[in-house]
Structures are given as structure tokens and as C-alpha cells.
Computed example of a mutant assay.
Amino acid sequence: PRPPYNAKPGEKFISIDLTNHTVAAWEGDKVVWGPVEAVHGSLPSPTYPGIFHVQTKLVNAHMKNDEAWDGPYDTWSPWTMYYHGGYAVHGTYTRWNWVQTNYGGSHGCVNLKPAKAKELFDWARVGTPVVIHRAGVI
């Protein structure tokens, strides 16, 4: 596949494909992990396209919002990598449906099954680019 980002040879980056609802890890122009299924944000809390960078990595992150559009939530998410404010790639134990819909996605984060989130967490470093795109285009 054609990389969605113009990486230097060997440069690591995370690709989040909003069209195919997948996450992959790349090194330069080669996929080295994935793609794996993911659930990203949906209306009215979308995941926004762009180029970001892993800012913080937390083995277990406390996520709480008393004013979410679908009601309050208070949960712990494993293998969390924040890339823009409160937006993160993380594992989730509470999701039972892995089919992306227009409603019922995440609150803007990118959800992975915990085992897959740990693999990506172990591979990435703070500073790793996170490229969020649709159908291969940023």
C-alpha cells in the first residue's frame, strides 16, 4: 500500500484510517504492524484528520466526562497514547461492538482491543507521528 504520510526512510508513524476504520504502524514506506480494526469518533464527537504526535503514554488512564453527548462516563483505559489534548489511541475493555457507525463510536479517541493497544503502545515512543486520514489521504 501507498503510505499516507511522507516519512523518512525508517521513520516510525501510526496511521489511523477513518475510511477503513483501521490502525497500522509504519516504518518508512512499509507496514510493520496491522492494519487492525479500530473504532474512532463519530457524530457528534468525531476524530479529526491531521498530523499529530504522541505526547504522553500512560499504562492506564482515567477518562471521565460528566457532560458527554450520550451521558457521563468514568472509565479506565489501558495502553493510552494521547496525541492532541484529550484525544488518544487507547485500549478499551468496555466496547463489545467493533463495527464503526455514524453514532456510537468513541468520544473522539481511537479505540483498540487491549492486546492490540499494548502492542502499538510498546512499539511507539513519545514524539511518534500520528497520521489521521481518510482513504490514504490526509
Rank of each mutant, 00 (worst) to 15 (best):
Thr80Tyr: 04
Leu43Met: 08
Asn20Lys: 14
Arg95Ala: 02
Ala68Arg: 11
Trp69Lys: 10
Gly136Val: 14
Lys8Cys: 02
Ala115Tyr: 06
Asp70Cys: 09
Lys57Asp: 01
Val131Arg: 05
Ala88Met: 15
Gly41Glu: 11
Val131Ile: 12
Lys64His: 10
Met63Leu: 15
Asn60Gln: 11
Pro78Tyr: 03
Ile14Asp: 00
Pro9Asn: 01
Lys12His: 02
Asn20Trp: 09
Thr101Phe: 13
Leu43Asn: 03
Glu11Val: 12
Trp96Phe: 09
Trp33Leu: 11
Phe52Arg: 10
Leu112Asn: 00
Glu27Phe: 06
His84Ala: 15
Val137Pro: 00
Val39Pro: 03
Ile16Val: 15
Ile138Asp: 02
His62Ile: 15
Trp123Met: 13
Pro78Asp: 00
Gly105Met: 06
Tyr103Cys: 05
Gly10Met: 08
Val39Asn: 02
Trp33Gly: 00
Trp76Ile: 10
Gly104Phe: 08
Gly127Thr: 09
Gly136Trp: 15
Lys12Arg: 09
Gly104His: 10
Cys109His: 05
His21Phe: 14
Gly85Pro: 13
Val54Tyr: 02
Trp26Thr: 02
Gly136Gln: 14
Lys8His: 02
Arg2His: 01
Thr75Tyr: 05
Arg134Val: 12
Lys30Phe: 01
Tyr73Pro: 08
Val130Met: 05
Thr94Val: 13
Ala61Thr: 09
Asp66Gln: 14
Pro72Cys: 07
Ile138Gln: 05
Lys64Glu: 08
Ser45Val: 13
Gly10Tyr: 03
Ile16Thr: 04
His21Cys: 13
Ala68Phe: 12
Ser77Phe: 10
Gly108Arg: 08
Trp96Ala: 03
Ala25Ile: 11
Pro1Tyr: 06
Phe13Glu: 01
Val130Gly: 05
Val110Met: 07
Cys109Lys: 08
His84Phe: 15
Pro1Asn: 04
Leu112Glu: 01
Gly91Phe: 12
Ile138Arg: 07
Thr56Trp: 13
Pro35Thr: 14
Gly127Ile: 14
His62Asp: 06
His84Lys: 14
Pro4Ala: 15
Gly86Val: 15
Gly108Trp: 10
Phe13Gln: 04
Tyr48Asn: 07
Phe13Asn: 04
Ala124Arg: 02
Ala7His: 02
Asn65Tyr: 07
Val99His: 11
His40Met: 13
